[in-house]
Computed example of a mutant assay.
Amino acid sequence: MNYTLNQLQIYLKVVQTMSITKAAEELNLTQPAVSIQIKNFQAQFEIPLIEIIGKKIYVTDFGAEIAKSAEGIIDQVYAINYKTMAFKDQLLGRLKVSVVSTGKYVLPYFLTDFLNHNQGVEISIDVTNREKVFHSLENNEVDFSLISTDINSPLYDHIDILENELYLVGNPVTASLNPKFAFQEFNKELPLIFRENGSGTRKIMETYLKKQGIHSLKKLELMSNEAVKQAVMAGLGYSIMPMIGIKNELKNGQLAIINRSGLPIVTTWKLIWHKEKNPSPVAKAFMAHIIEKKEEIKKKHFE
């Protein structure tokens, strides 16, 4: 056997994503480079690790066992690296954060300086919806979560980070054809475009419509904010979306804000954690970083 650590990492990522393309994207490699490394890795075993049937990847029982071993080896390498950093008196460890989908536009700005000053820290970010974010907190899978809706539970503590403004938006041409914009017209014309059940943005949108006395509407449901944005830009309908995810499209004239009573809706981005969780040194350091630097970061990147 003459496989490399790089081959183990690539193989494990392919197994985790069940896709050569997704593995290549997450590893910042080309798809051919990943395919070659998988081929070279497979050549060292007489038993198949994965099978490709109809362009879909299936991991064999033997391949699953190898993936478990690969994960253990990689964890041991991380442990060696952490011990090296510890002898240098540097902060080390992993920080795990789950964020709602629009949180991906917020969190990186609060991470950059922290990671630059603590190069022994590794970060794992899971981008999902509100329901799954709370599931990850309840199951102690993450250190923190980033949400923009109310918590409504005594189990969690939080730090307020940033205001989140949501506006009604549409394709500029489509919006110009309906300047009065009566919500009641949606059963006849274009639909309102919603996120899936479990999404915080959907919950905010439904609460707003209920306050306006609007109940029965023609709806289109999509699974991500990016999909909603693309659908609105294409003129398929209207939606209520966070400003932070649509700034460029507004500047470019691909989207238009439609002013209506009760808008914009203003919520707050919150970094939250389970009160019973014992934070690691890395988690404590990141919390201190947020408290110390949040005003500076807001002024620099979000005003």
Rank of each mutant, 00 (worst) to 15 (best):
L91I: 05
L49Y: 09
N225E: 15
N40I: 06
K56C: 02
G93Q: 03
G170N: 06
S98P: 08
L209Q: 02
K13C: 05
N6H: 06
V100P: 11
P242M: 02
P179T: 10
F134L: 09
E249S: 15
Y58N: 10
K218N: 15
T84G: 09
Q90E: 15
E131K: 14
V142T: 15
S98F: 06
I147C: 12
G93K: 03
T149G: 09
I204S: 00
A182L: 14
L222F: 11
L168G: 05
Y109A: 02
F134C: 08
L12T: 12
I297A: 12
L250N: 12
Q90H: 09
V232R: 14
F181K: 07
S136W: 04
V97G: 02
K275R: 14
T17P: 02
N118W: 00
D75M: 03
H301G: 05
K298T: 13
V169P: 06
A79P: 00
A288V: 10
K203V: 00
G72L: 08
I290W: 07
V228K: 09
N259C: 01
R202D: 00
I36C: 04
D160P: 02
N81K: 13
T268H: 10
Y82K: 10
E71S: 14
F302E: 07
E303W: 05
H289T: 07
I240C: 09
V15P: 01
E71V: 03
K55R: 12
N197F: 05
E303L: 12
Y238A: 06
E122C: 00
H274C: 03
N81W: 02
Q9V: 02
G213I: 04
G237Y: 05
F194W: 06
M223T: 12
A283F: 11
K211Y: 01
A43S: 15
Y78I: 03
Q254M: 07
V106P: 06
T60H: 02
N118S: 01
E296C: 08
N116P: 00
N118C: 01
M205V: 00
L29R: 12
V99C: 11
D160R: 07
D143T: 13
K219D: 04
G54T: 02
Y167M: 03
L209W: 01
A24W: 01
E163Y: 10
E131W: 05
N171G: 09
K299G: 12
K96T: 10
R130Q: 08
F181E: 11
I204P: 00
E292C: 07
H289C: 04
A23T: 04
A86L: 09
E276F: 03
E25P: 01
T207Q: 04
N129C: 03
I246A: 09
N116V: 00
